[in-house]
Design a protein around this nucleic acid. Sequence first.
DNA 1: ACAAAATGTCAAATATATTTTACATAATGA
DNA 2: TCATTATGTAAAATATATTTGACATTTTGT
Lengths: 72, 72
Amino acid sequence: MKTNLRKYRFENGELSQQQLADMIGVSRQTIVSIEKNDYSPSVKLALILAKKFNITVEQLFELEEGDIDETR
Amino acid sequence: MKTNLRKYRFENGELSQQQLADMIGVSRQTIVSIEKNDYSPSVKLALILAKKFNITVEQLFELEEGDIDETR
DNA sequence: ACAAAATGTCAAATATATTTTACATAATGA
DNA sequence: TCATTATGTAAAATATATTTGACATTTTGT
């Protein structure tokens, strides 16, 4: 899975990681980890992020080859 | 957050929970828990489910009042 | 040049997601 | 009617997501 979080964060007034974290009520470290693709966040968080940026979850996160086999 | 997983599972050839679980490589209990809205699944799993049903994640899971405040 | 802000990195603690196991009940099909 | 399948439920074990705390480095703005 690929994440475009940083791309949209910059496109949205060049928010800092902390500003975005504050806006949606998570820790900065969570934003850092998502941007680094450390793990797959909850779909609830993904929906909130997508809504904040006025995009779809599919634009924010992209499945990649191999994802289907391994699943989550 | 609200889940429409059961709705789409039925609309997709009336798959059983086990069949769907097998198709995407998770346990049946996971499907059960998601349908019961026990917890918010990973966005990766959500993307795979949405792709399977040819819908968007937003159709599969809906944010509700209060979600934004509490976040995840 | 320098202070403040932003980002990077690490890791333990904590919370949540998922699996495994198992039994109970309901639904389905012959 | 009865066997099989599907679903419901529970809970412990395991895996992963997130938070907290802290320090290091880079970037930014004056």
